[in-house]
């Protein structure tokens, strides 16, 4: 099948490649760019394991073609850590609050949470739960993911994180 040339910015770097028109963005990211932190869990846009940040929106990269991302600016999990290599507030929150187990949903979950906190820097628990409802986790039951996001929000806002009473 004839290939198309695409260019986009991924994690701050200009990248390019030849793709078939039908190549999914997630396959371009995983296979052409070899950024394998973005995962595939369902290929029907339900699970969110493939979530990336694309031009300021959370996008499920399994249901968009690479050619549709021409010229876009994309962040994947590999571009989330702080510039000095330390964990971002969200990455740290997930570790501190035990917000992950098998780790498969984690990159998509963190990317979604990062965008959520930009949309709403101090979300309530209900807003967090609604905000991540496009991302499925099979291991944690979400409770500690909610805490991880609250931890990160507190850290970003410069306030002490107070774990809600059980």
């Amino acid at each position: 099948m004839a290939k198309t040339h695409v260019t986009m910015k991924v994690n701050g770097a200009e990248v390019e490649g030849l793709v078939e028109p039908r190549t999914l963005l997630v396959h371009f990211i995983r296979e052409n760019l070899q950024l394998t932190g973005t995962h595939i869990g369902c290929e029907t846009t339900h699970c969110g394991a493939c979530t990336v940040d694309l031009d300021g929106m959370s996008v499920k990269s399994c249901t968009i073609f690479a050619v549709q991302a021409e010229g876009a600016s994309i962040t994947t999990i590999e571009g989330v850590a702080n510039a000095d290599g330390t964990l971002s507030a969200l990455q740290e929150g997930f570790r501190m609050m035990h917000g992950l187990q098998c780790g498969f949903c984690t990159p998509g979950m963190i990317l979604r949470a990062q965008r959520l906190l930009q949309e709403n820097p101090s979300p309530t628990e209900a807003e967090i739960r609604m905000g991540i409802s496009g991302n499925i986790c099979r291991c944690t039951g979400y409770q500690n993911i909610v805490k991880a996001i609250q931890y990160a929000a507190a850290k970003i806002n410069g306030v002490q994180y107070q774990e809600a009473a059980e």
Binding site: I77, V80, R95, T106
Partner: peptide, 21 residues
């Protein structure tokens, strides 16, 4: 104890089967 695994999983550096090329 906080998990040893989390450093790689939170940074997209897990090593799952489909990552193998």
């Amino acid at each position: 104890r906080k998990r040893v695994e989390d450093a790689r999983f939170t940074q997209g550096k897990g090593n799952y089967v489909d990552d193998l090329k």
